[in-house]
Design a protein around this nucleic acid. Structure first.
Length: 903
RNA sequence: GGGCAGUUAGCUCAGCUGGUUCAGAGCAUCUGCCUUACAAGCAGAGGGUCGGGGGUUCAAAUCCCUCACUGCCCACCA
């Protein structure tokens, strides 16, 4: 009746078909309802983004929680989106233009933006398609682009409000400048790297001709903008010079010698040149002393007219040229090798230039305070928790956020300048005129800069709900309902690298504008590294395309393997074969999927073969039919539900994966299915067989259900194949198995454990004696009467698993002639091997085992002889040790006896 | 300079509130099996003084101190 399953699982087709079926059935779309809400905000991938393994891990985790909570009956919604990614996208289009021999200035701002939109439509958002291949159960109907009208409106409103409240201000400051992007960067977009350069010690002559001052610098090309030389006020060497002037070489200007604590007497000569426009520390010195702040370096990092003959040279070329000239003038005292940290653009990799310019800033401190509290109070929880410290450190030392970017692609700053120099933030020029009290025909110019991309990202918890920047109470009813139902969201899954960029700022913005926390739990994912511990990156060639890997192993296999290998708070190592771009560890997931597949195949084959159509269902008391093994698997399954739930509740996803892996593979397949084979073979009764298989199927269905969050495709595929549900249904919505606690039965588990030990003992002995499986041998088992009865009950299983020709079970049986012996938990297991026994080997093994046991007995006796232990430890622990001693002693005695009687 | 992780079998890692599965799993290695669900498999075996040292405790892989090494984050003295 059901179609026979192929021998191995073929994931690719099944995965695509099921994803479409889920979409068709609308399983991923959610609306506020009477059910409990559960929501996750998808970190919006860049519009230029391509799927990599970081996304795979991140999205697998999110999908697990979405599907798990859907299984639990929540109204789950996963809000997807796409980030306009200012610099990255603009760079793409500029590259395109470059191929045509054009720059963005050639086409002009408006045409350039149009072109970027066209690029976005054509090439952007490929990654969203790729995420579907992974299986993301996201509510795609709610996909938001950060430059959609509502989101753009929100950005504008927020800017205006912060401006009006004085939390956004314009200032001339030293910022991080990218000469390549020709734009400012925030502090977070700069990474520091150690660089080996030179420390030049230069001679500056005193203006009055009374001597020379030596000072050290790594940037001699900036001397044209020197405005002072600083010495430490406590530095006696220079005390008499304070107030005098030195002549700056090459440009002949005289600048004062000032006293400032910034100068470190122990570094170099103790004198430092002050160049406020080109160094953040010098800038502060300049401010303290009211010094002028000329710039000698332009936006493109070339020197300007202040540098005289060096004008037009790039900063690095200029450095060489300046040093050469100074050397010729004998003004270079010495040049030392010098290793120090230099800032580089996180994106482009070029050295960042400290650059003095007008920029827009957000005053962070007032926003940070409530955000700090929300985390300190535990309203928002971090997993792993240790990131709280990092968060608190950053938040308590938070610096103002430079939000203006000299780009074209992005949200334009809604600030208008009047001819008289006044300015304001407004929704339109008309509104600005009104705010400034100007007539309708007054000419205004809008600020030409755009906002940092993160200035839209930090509003994500609100914009995803349809918020356009209005006061929460004034939101349109549909958005308001969504917002109130789903925010705070339940979980955010992201990398710790964007804790400042994004997580912290979302908390600040949502508290301020949404009047609530944005999310309750934050899960920080692991960093993925290759076998050598390096981060995966395209340039290193160790970053395989996840799509290729999914094609080879299946999406479920990739998801499962990543989950299995990614402990909370630790890096993940993924061995990557650089030659083939293969990730061999994906076999873990693939093999597991295949195991599941074959377990299902077995059950289905047996049902087809042994249960004729029309076989009546068993309608008696199931307790009558349940064997120890049946009870055991039910007990194990009930425990598995509990422990899997606990693992996911604590965000221990690796543990969740391992629990299910072990249950399916070890308990269900290795033991239970093997017992089912015996039970089927030994009872020629169709009703019983039907009942037994139904029972086996039921547990399997439960396992598929628990696995669905991590392996959605195969679990649904098998579920439909076996249980014949129609495609509009999914195992992901049948509910979590519950009310099974009464199946947990420690006595049954203990007994089955003994059975396993006895079987393992027989197998071990057979293996050691090199007896092939085809050869059946007599087995004799001797145990105390209570256990003997149980072993007798398990006769069929023991005969089959132990490949026995005959089985004798009794109490106090003597060791048969020509047998080898083993003792497990006081049960003696004799294998009659007749001529085949290697007595020497057997003697060695028994002796070794006996020695080990005796050693342990001595240890435990010592422990029990310790008065401190007996009085100090919990009574049940002491009792446990006593029982253990008794068991071991009995076992040792039997072992010794068997060793003696060995011929 | 400040902070946060980590160090357990050849490799990758579990081991959570100290003791009842306490020294584990997977991979790799070795042995035997095409046993009619699965060789992407089955059955076995070997392999670790839990980074070093000290302390607390009746009891430490587990708690505390200290040192060493590895990785990450923050800061940026020219």
């Amino acid at each position: 009746m059901s179609e026979l399953l192929p021998k191995t699982y073929q994931p690719t087709e099944a995965e695509q078909a099921w994803y479409q079926a889920w979409l068709d059935a609308g399983h991923f779309h959610a609306q506020p309802s009477s059910k409990a809400p559960y929501s996750i905000l998808m970190p919006p991938p860049n519009v230029t983004g391509i799927l990599h393994f970081g996304h795979v891990l991140n999205h697998t985790i999110q999908d697990i929680y979405i599907r798990w909570n859907r299984l639990k009956g929540a109204e789950t919604c996963w809000f997807p989106g796409l980030d306009h990614a200012g610099i990255a996208t603009q760079t793409k289009v500029e590259q395109q233009l470059k191929a045509e021999g054009l720059t963005r200035y050639d086409v002009g701002r408006e045409a350039f933006i149009e072109r970027t939109w066209a690029w976005k439509e054509k090439y952007g958002g490929i990654i969203l398609e790729q995420l579907r291949r992974l299986g993301d159960a996201a509510d795609w109907e709610r996909t938001l682009f950060t430059m959609d009208a509502s989101a753009s409106s929100a950005v504008q409103e927020v800017f205006i409000r912060l401006f009006d409240e004085g939390l956004i201000y314009r200032g001339k400051r030293i910022i991080n400048w990218s000469p390549v992007a020709q734009s400012a960067l925030s502090d977070e977009e700069v990474i520091f790297r150690e660089v080996r350069e030179h420390l030049y010690t230069l001679r500056y002559h005193l203006a009055d001709g009374s001597g020379t001052l030596l000072l050290s610098t790594v940037r001699p090309e900036t001397i044209f903008a020197d405005v002072a030389v600083a010495v430490n006020p406590s530095d006696e060497r220079y005390a008499h010079m304070i107030g005098k002037h030195v002549t700056v070489p090459l440009c002949g200007r005289d600048v004062p010698i000032i006293a400032d604590d910034y100068a470190d007497p122990t570094f170099g000569t103790g004198c430092v040149k002050i160049t406020p426009a080109h160094d953040p520390n010098d800038f502060e010195v300049g401010q303290r002393h009211g010094l002028p702040m000329p710039s000698c370096i332009e936006a493109d990092a070339t020197l300007n007219a202040m540098a005289g003959e060096f004008a037009g040279l790039d900063r690095f070329a200029a450095r060489k040229a300046v040093v050469k000239k100074l050397e010729a003038m004998e003004l270079v005292e010495k040049i030392d090798d010098y290793t120090h940290n230099v800032g580089f653009s996180e994106r482009g990799g070029e050295a960042v230039e400290p650059f003095l310019s007008d920029q827009w800033f957000v005053r962070m401190q007032p926003l940070a305070e409530p955000a700090l509290k929300a985390v300190a109070d535990g309203q928002i929880r971090f997993y792993p928790e240790h990131w709280v410290k990092t968060y608190e450190h950053w938040m308590t030392n938070v610096r103002d956020w430079c939000i203006s970017r000299q780009l074209w692609w992005g949200h334009r700053i809604p600030v208008y300048y009047a001819a008289d120099g006044r300015l304001t933030a407004a929704r339109s020029a008309d509104e600005a005129r009104a705010k400034l009290g100007l007539p309708a025909d007054a000419v205004l110019t809008q600020d030409s800069d755009v906002l940092d991309t993160w200035f839209s990202s930090w509003l994500w918890p609100m914009t995803t709900m349809g918020w356009a920047g209005e006061p929460v109470a004034a939101m349109p009813p549909a958005s308001k309902a969504l917002f109130d139902y789903y925010v705070p969201t339940n979980l955010l899954v992201t990398g710790p690298d964007i804790i400042f960029f994004w997580v912290a700022r979302m908390i600040m913005a949502t508290l301020k504008f949404g009047e609530r926390i944005p999310f309750r739990d934050v899960y920080f994912t692991s960093i993925i590294r290759d076998g050598k511990g390096r981060k995966l990156s395209k340039s290193l060639g160790n970053s395989p395309d996840p799509l290729d890997v999914m094609d080879k192993y299946g999406a479920d296999a990739v998801r499962f393997t990543m989950t299995y290998l990614s402990p909370l708070g630790m890096d993940v190592r993924l061995d990557v074969d650089e030659a083939t771009q293969d990730v061999p560890s994906m076999e873990i997931g693939r093999n597991f999927a295949n195991k599941l597949w074959n377990a299902a195949r077995f059950l289905q084959m047996k049902r087809d073969e042994l249960v004729p159509e029309g076989t009546p269902a068993y309608d008696g008391d199931p307790a009558v039919l349940l064997s120890t093994a049946d009870r055991w698997i039910r007990s194990r399954f009930a425990s598995t539900v509990t422990s899997a739930t606990q693992a996911l509740d604590a965000y221990r996803i690796t543990e969740y994966a391992k629990i299910l892996y072990d249950f399916v593979w070890r308990d269900y397949c290795d033991w239970y299915v093997e017992v089912v084979k015996v039970q089927l073979a030994n009872r020629d009764d169709a009703t019983y067989r039907r009942w037994l298989l139904d029972q086996a199927f039921e547990v399997f269905e439960g396992a598929l259900t628990l696995l669905h969050p991590v392996m959605p495709f195969i679990s649904d595929d098998l579920w439909h194949r076996i249980y014949g549900a129609d495609t509009s249904q999914t195992v992901g919505m049948r509910g979590l198995p519950n009310g099974l606690d009464h199946h947990v039965d420690p006595v049954v588990e203990q007994r089955f454990d003994l059975l396993q030990s006895v079987v393992e003992s027989i197998r071990r002995q057979r293996n050691e004696m090199m007896i092939p499986p085809s050869e059946r041998l007599p087995i004799v088992i001797s145990a105390e009467s209570a256990l003997a009865a149980f072993i007798e009950e398990q006769r069929d299983v023991l005969v089959s698993f132990g490949r026995a020709s005959e089985l004798t079970v009794g109490t106090a049986l003597a060791k048969p002639d020509g047998s080898v012996a083993d003792v497990v938990r006081g049960v003696e297991v004799f294998l009659v091997v007749a001529g085949k026994v290697d007595f020497e080997k057997e003697r060695q093994r028994l002796t070794k085992e006996l020695e080990r046991l005796r050693g342990q007995i001595v240890g435990i006796e010592k422990k029990l002889g310790n008065a401190g232990f007996v009085s100090g430890a919990k009574p049940e622990v002491v009792e446990g040790e006593r029982r253990k001693l008794a068991d071991w002693t009995a076992t040792a005695e039997k072992l010794a006896r068997n060793l003696e009687s060995l011929q």
